Amino acid sequence: MPIPHISPTANSALSSALEHAINSKTKPLGSLGMLETLARQIGLIQQSTQLALHQPAIIVFAADHGVVAEGISAYPQSVTWQMVENFLGNGAAINVFARQNDSTLYIVDAGVNHDFGPRDGLLDRKQGPGTRNFAKEPAMSREQCLAAMQAGMDLVASLGGNVLGFGEMGIGNTTAAAALMHKLTGTPVADCVGAGTGLSKEGVRHKQQVIEAAVAHHAAVDEPLDVLATFGGFEIAMMAGAMLKAAERRMILLIDGFIVSSALLVAARLQPAILDYCVFSHCSDENGHRQLLASLGARPLLHLDLRLGEGTGSALALPLLHAAVNFMREMATFASAQVSEKSTPD
Rank of each mutant, 00 (worst) to 15 (best):
S295A: 09
V96S: 13
A52K: 12
A110M: 14
G311P: 04
Q144K: 06
N326T: 15
A178W: 01
Y277W: 07
F87T: 13
N133A: 12
L123V: 15
Q208C: 10
V112N: 01
S31Q: 11
L122I: 15
I259Q: 03
A69D: 11
S24W: 09
A335K: 13
M34V: 15
Q291W: 05
V108S: 07
D191Q: 09
L254G: 00
L321F: 06
A268S: 03
G30R: 11
G196N: 05
N86V: 09
H217Y: 08
M34T: 14
F134K: 01
F234Y: 10
G309F: 05
Q338T: 14
Q50T: 14
L253D: 00
A267I: 06
I45D: 00
R329P: 06
G111E: 07
K183M: 11
V60N: 08
S262D: 01
G313E: 07
H206M: 14
A74P: 01
F258M: 08
T197V: 14
V84L: 12
A324P: 02
A315I: 14
G160I: 14
L18V: 11
A151M: 12
L301S: 06
L275T: 02
I22R: 05
S31R: 10
S16C: 10
G161V: 13
T174G: 04
L146N: 03
H282I: 11
G203H: 04
H322L: 15
E223N: 05
G71E: 06
L180G: 01
T80K: 08
G172V: 12
V325G: 02
L318P: 02
L29M: 14
G297T: 05
G33P: 03
A98C: 13
T131W: 02
A177G: 03
G198W: 06
L164E: 05
M181G: 01
G91S: 09
C278Q: 05
A110N: 09
D285V: 13
G309L: 11
D124W: 15
S281I: 11
M34L: 12
A147D: 04
A229E: 01
H282E: 08
N86C: 08
E19P: 03
M331A: 11
R249K: 10
A267W: 01
V68T: 09
V210I: 12
G203V: 10
L122P: 04
I255H: 02
D109P: 06
T312K: 10
S343A: 13
V325Q: 05
E168H: 04
D154G: 08
Q46F: 08
N287M: 13
E85Q: 12
M1C: 05
